[in-house]
Design a protein around this nucleic acid. Structure first.
Length: 447
RNA sequence: GCCCUGGUAGUAUAGUUCGGUCUAGUAUAGGCGGCUGUCGCCCGCCCGACCCGGGUUCAAAUCCCGGCCAGGGCGCCA
């Protein structure tokens, strides 16, 4: 049998080999010590009598140096049969040297080939030859070995960890609401339908109604999880499946949860700026820790600003994407937009007591992108029914939700932030697909 | 859903304006050979592509029509 144009080599067993060090932990102090490193072949440079194999693991790379004259025949044969992206294990001795940038190399005593890679590969992991996003997503697992991809998802991990810590420390309880629901939670966005035994069900577009119900016992809740929108949108910032970070708090108003939101964003930016220096450098990206509180503008003030720039938005209408792009140029960082017209926001956002045409809804903007939205919620059953009707929805289809208002619904408020959009902002990526492991959009369902 | 742009080796590109010189160029990857200190190693040789279907023409990668796919924009949204 032939693979890659040559005789198929034996695949070795991992056996009792376990990693003793990640690549970056192999340091000059270990000179003379035996180590076992595991990973993938990033690069091979063969100079004839000497062959350099660069091994990559999730933390970095380390050089394996094979000297033809001084190494056993068996090791040389193995080293010669390696190709890039093979999964391998190397047992060898650390050698201090001035010949490598990191000051060390590993002289192998045994190499094990643990998994082969079929060549030619669909993309270049070293990044010397670029690949387009479509090509990269089709070969996503290989693409995820690129330094840039690794950096993005390391940052995402740090963000999620920072968010969970922050919210837990502020007394929020993590909850999970159903993904499979009987009917629309908000109206508005289109839903995916699923066959649910003998019924039709839908994939949840938001945890909105459930999180409101949960504050009736837990008071402060948060949820991080995927939600689904069957929108036809095909843009750089929309997905069919996205991660929403939601909070809801009892006995609170928009003002209270806006404070939580800006403190959270501040905390997250700080965690990334301090904890992901290497990753930000890889991405050639800078994260400025924002000053809090963020600027707050009312909807009316925003309309006036836009008018000055020559963009007229009729009062009560939502702000168009081109108008938001204009705003992004005026306000190049974080800012809130408050006091929206009631009719432009969802039925569960509370109209103001002193002026029912305005409501307690807000958006958190980053430049021209809507990062989060939230508000004070309606907690009166009668008002909620009235609002449902005004939005053209049928109170009958919300009867299970309306029923809980008979059990002592407190005033409450909350928000939701689009995780991927936040990650885009922190990583400087212009396409949301870059920051999702396996994105789902209007035209992509695989891999 | 609508609008715009594009589709050339595994990948990324040149060529398309104005049809012929394209037997389709380059880089990288891949194969073979050489090289004992590389770190985007180097050198030589080789392999490999015009999205699909139809049309115009003496002649189509190039022009026209349809399809599929991709990227961007809009509306909607987070």
């Amino acid at each position: 049998m032939r693979v890659n144009g040559r005789t198929r080599m034996e695949i070795d067993q991992l056996g009792d080999w376990r990693r003793t060090h990640y690549s970056i932990d192999v340091k000059p102090e270990l000179d003379g010590k035996e180590v076992v490193v595991l990973g993938w072949v990033r690069d091979i440079r063969d100079l004839g009598g000497i062959r350099f194999v660069i091994l990559q693991d999730r933390e970095g790379t380390v050089q394996i140096t094979v000297l033809r004259g001084k190494t056993s025949k068996k090791v040389i044969e193995k080293a010669d049969s390696l190709q890039t992206q093979f999964s391998i294990g190397v047992k060898g001795t650390v050698k201090k040297t001035k010949m490598t940038p990191r000051g060390i190399e590993i002289i192998p005593s045994e190499i094990r080939i643990l998994g082969i890679a079929q060549h030619p590969l669909p993309l270049d992991v070293t990044g010397r030859t670029p690949a387009e996003i479509d090509t990269r997503l089709n070969a996503r697992v290989l693409d995820l070995r690129r330094d840039e991809s690794q950096a993005i998802f390391k940052i995402e991990h740090v963000v999620l960890e920072a968010m969970r810590n922050f919210l837990s420390e502020h007394g929020f309880v993590e909850v999970h609401t159903p993904r499979i629901i009987a009917s629309a939670t908000e109206g508005g966005a289109a839903l995916f339908s699923v066959a649910y035994f003998e019924h039709e069900a839908f994939l949840a577009q938001s945890p909105q109604l459930y999180k409101e119900q949960l504050i009736m016992s837990f008071e402060k809740v948060f949820e991080i999880g995927p939600f689904f929108r069957a929108e036809e949108s095909h843009t750089r910032r929309h997905l069919s499946e996205f991660i929403s970070v939601d909070i809801e708090e009892a006995f609170a108003t928009a003002t209270d949860v806006m404070k939580v939101l800006e403190e959270l964003v501040h905390h997250v930016c700080k965690a990334v700026a301090e904890g992901c220096r290497k990753e930000l450098e890889t991405l050639k990206c800078k994260v400025d820790v924002p000053r809090i509180p963020f600027k707050r503008f009312t909807y009316d003030e925003i309309l006036k600003e836009l008018k000055k720039e020559g963009t007229t938005v009729p009062w009560g209408e939502d702000i168009s994407t081109p108008a938001f792009r204009t705003l992004g140029k005026i306000h190049p960082y974080f800012y809130f937009i408050t006091d929206w017209p009631t009719k432009s926001k969802a039925f569960y956002i509370k109209p103001r007591d002193d002026n029912p045409d305005l409501c307690g809804g807000f958006d958190l903007m980053w430049r021209w992108i809507e990062l989060a939205s939230g508000g004070t919620r309606v907690h009166s059953k009668d008002l909620l029914i009235k609002r449902l009707k005004e939005q053209g929805l049928h109170p009958e289809s919300f009867k299970f939700h309306l029923k809980v208002f008979d059990y002592g619904m407190p005033p409450h408020a909350g928000w939701a932030i689009g995780l991927e959009r936040l990650i885009m902002m922190l990583t400087g990526k212009k396409n949301i697909r870059d920051v999702v492991l396996f994105p789902r959009d209007r035209f992509r369902l695989t891999p």
